[in-house]
């Protein structure tokens, strides 16, 4: 297991596309903050002016406006990382090793966790740079709240990356995977659920969907909200990791 993870990690670290994605993301994030300054009216988000927001509030504000760029970058990376191996047939070189199919999926899940951390670090750093330059505000706010927000977001985004991995294994097509990922990022499923819910009484399923949860604003000091986030992330993460492993075990490889 460790050896296959080390191999994937080596490929991840030496992969130029990962650094390009991070750099482009940082550049667009800073540019986005510049656009806020230039064109946004004195926006009141939850009663707070954007320029006065601390980092926690700013991140939550960004995630409340779908589609989230960070989700797009994550799905691009996940699909690319999986299919660069799958389409080249490189897996054939090691897949006959004992339990290699399981380890290969687990390894990719771990690499995606690392990429998610990188993305979050890039997001926080570029936000601080952008907000520092354009709003002269680098306040993080309450560190405890900020830490809880980052952990919650990390779990949700990691779960999303596993969902994308599962989709990639299932579809076996890069283009189809990109298409499905885009539909998910646009929260089309959440919107359909919301419409169906409006036709029914006392049914609130959409709020428990992963992408809807990512786009919702929660109070991370509130226990119920924390349980909501942790349970949605954990269930999605475990469920799709399990499905992805089962699919890979059963898969007839090309």
């Amino acid at each position: 297991m460790l050896n296959i993870f080390r191999m994937d990690l080596h490929r991840f670290i030496t992969n130029k596309i990962m650094y390009i994605l991070l750099l482009v993301f940082c550049a667009f994030q800073i540019f986005g903050i510049f656009m806020f300054k230039q064109y946004a009216q004195p926006i009141q988000a939850g009663g707070i002016d954007i320029s006065k927001m601390n980092e926690s509030e700013f991140i939550q504000h960004l995630f409340s406006q779908p589609p989230s760029w960070i989700l797009i970058y994550i799905f691009v990376f996940c699909v690319y990382f999986y299919f660069s191996e799958y389409n080249s047939g490189f897996y054939k070189n090691y897949i006959t090793m004992k339990k290699a199919r399981v380890y290969s999926v687990v390894s990719k899940i771990l690499v995606q966790a690392i990429f998610t951390v990188f993305m979050m670090v890039a997001m926080v750093v570029s936000d601080l740079i952008g907000r520092g330059i354009f709003f002269d505000n680098t306040s993080i706010g309450d560190l405890g709240y900020f830490a809880k927000l980052l952990i919650g977001l990390f779990l949700l985004l990691w779960a999303f990356s596993i969902l994308i991995l599962c989709t990639s294994i299932f579809t076996r097509s890069m283009l189809v995977s990109f298409g499905i990922a885009l539909v998910l990022v646009l929260n089309v499923v959440g919107m359909i659920f919301a419409v169906l819910e409006s036709l029914l009484d006392n049914v609130y399923l959409s709020q428990y969907l992963l992408v809807s949860t990512i786009y919702s604003t929660f109070d991370y000091n509130h226990g119920r909200d924390l349980i909501h986030i942790a349970s949605v992330a954990t269930v999605t993460l475990l469920l799709f990791a399990f499905i992805a492993i089962r699919l890979k075990i059963k898969e007839d490889l090309r």
Binding site: N3, I4, M7, R11, S88, G89, K92, N93
Partner: peptide
């Protein structure tokens, strides 16, 4: 089987080096 599974951007040595990690 069929075509060898190779990363086009790697050299032969690097390809084997990468797989040597997987084989421990």
């Amino acid at each position: 089987i069929e075509n060898p599974g190779l990363y086009p951007q790697y050299t032969a040595y690097k390809t084997l080096q990468l797989l040597a990690i997987a084989y421990g």
